[in-house]
């Protein structure tokens, strides 16, 4: 399974397993959406937006990417169904595909306060990239 939501006392951990680091970032975006919206397939890829995430540490990049998506939900009321992530000089370039939040079709389930650093892990094990990131809900 590329990602799972693991129970964690008062909060939830996103557990991701992917064949490459870039795929791991893309799966993490899906994992976050599945936590935010009851039915992720209700979000259409109606429009795209692009942003960059500066940095080079994989764990920091993961936190910053997910934090960016989270802020987009609150400030622009926009949901990303899918992200394409590529490496560029100085960080990541992200193209997100999704649509504006429509309460009649998108049932939000959790208010995610933040992506945390607590027990944050991003590592490569026998050719697979694995991550665990706890989100504050």
């Amino acid at each position: 399974m590329p990602f799972a939501l693991r129970d964690h006392t008062a909060d939830v951990a996103l557990v991701i397993d992917a064949p490459s680091l870039l795929a791991l970032f893309e799966e993490a975006c899906q994992a976050l959406l599945s936590l935010l919206v009851e039915e992720p397939s209700s979000v259409r890829e109606a429009e795209g937006c692009a942003f960059e995430v500066p940095g080079d540490d994989p764990a920091d990049l993961l936190v910053d990417l997910l934090s960016e998506l989270l802020a987009t939900v609150e400030t622009r009321r926009w949901l990303a169904r899918r992200c394409c992530v590529e490496r560029v000089a100085g960080g990541l370039r992200v193209r997100a595909f999704g649509e504006a939040l429509d309460p009649s079709r998108h049932r939000l389930t959790h208010e995610v306060k933040a992506i945390t650093y607590h027990r944050l892990k991003v590592r490569c094990v026998r050719g697979r990239w694995l991550a665990e990131v706890i989100v504050d809900v």
Partner: peptide, 17 residues
Amino acid sequence: TRALERGADQCGTLGSG
């Protein structure tokens, strides 16, 4: 700026959880 944006229409809201 992002913090200010997130707060602009949230003063006087309960939130969830």
